[in-house]
Amino acid sequence: MGDSSNIIPGLFDLNLNIMFQNDMHSITDTITSLYKRLTQEHKEVHNVLNKMIAVVKSKPWRGKNDSIICLENILERDPRNLNALSDIEFLCRSIHRVNEADMYKEMLNAILNGGEIEDRRSKAICLMEQGYAILYDEDANVEHITKDRLSETYRMLLSEHKKSSGKRNNCIQLCIYHNKEALLNLQR
């Protein structure tokens, strides 16, 4: 598999766009979208989706404990999951649970420095999960940008529609209709 020193486990270090959401509505929308994705995706990526949910939930201060519980559930099923170990270590340090963080760090280092088949498997899964998270984040970000631009255009068209008359008014009204249809299709 190569040099494991190049592997930096955890989703927090990836600087995903989902980590920088401050609006509670967009956080809730992202969590809902990730839960929906859980029902649609193959079970092999369920752990990474649950980790992404934990990352998003950790944004508000009170959500850090919920995130830790979510990651602990993943570790119950897969105690060698490098991304979960790294993320739970990060969260424990952020809320000053240093002894727990040190315990998770030791487990993480043992797997990263190990050469057994299971260690290599854990490293491969770690990289696969990170790749999936990056692809999801880029896809979600493009969708979010598109939705914002269509919404902004819709508001501008409404403003122009109020000022216009005659043939221009009819054309703008048609543009508003198609803009709204595009927004509805994007939401589906």
Rank of each mutant, 00 (worst) to 15 (best):
R93K: 10
C171D: 15
N170H: 06
L174S: 12
L34T: 04
I172N: 15
I176T: 02
L85P: 04
H42M: 07
L16I: 04
L186S: 05
N99G: 00
L16N: 05
L14G: 00
L38D: 08
L16M: 01
A133S: 03
M128R: 00
N113Y: 09
T39Y: 13
D137S: 02
N47W: 03
S165R: 14
N6R: 06
W61S: 05
N170W: 07
N6K: 07
L174M: 08
I18L: 11
S151P: 02
L16K: 00
T153Y: 08
S33G: 08
A101Q: 07
P9V: 10
Q21N: 11
V98W: 07
S58P: 04
E76P: 15
M52L: 06
K105S: 14
K147R: 10
D139S: 04
L75E: 09
I176S: 01
R93M: 09
E89D: 10
M107Y: 14
E89V: 08
K147N: 08
G166M: 13
P9G: 12
T30N: 02
Y177G: 03
M103V: 11
M107G: 13
I7H: 03
N109H: 15
L127S: 05
R93Y: 09
N15H: 08
I27D: 01
M24K: 12
E118M: 05
N65V: 15
S94R: 12
C70W: 13
I145P: 03
L85C: 09
D3R: 11
E152A: 15
R77Y: 12
W61M: 07
K57Y: 06
K59M: 08
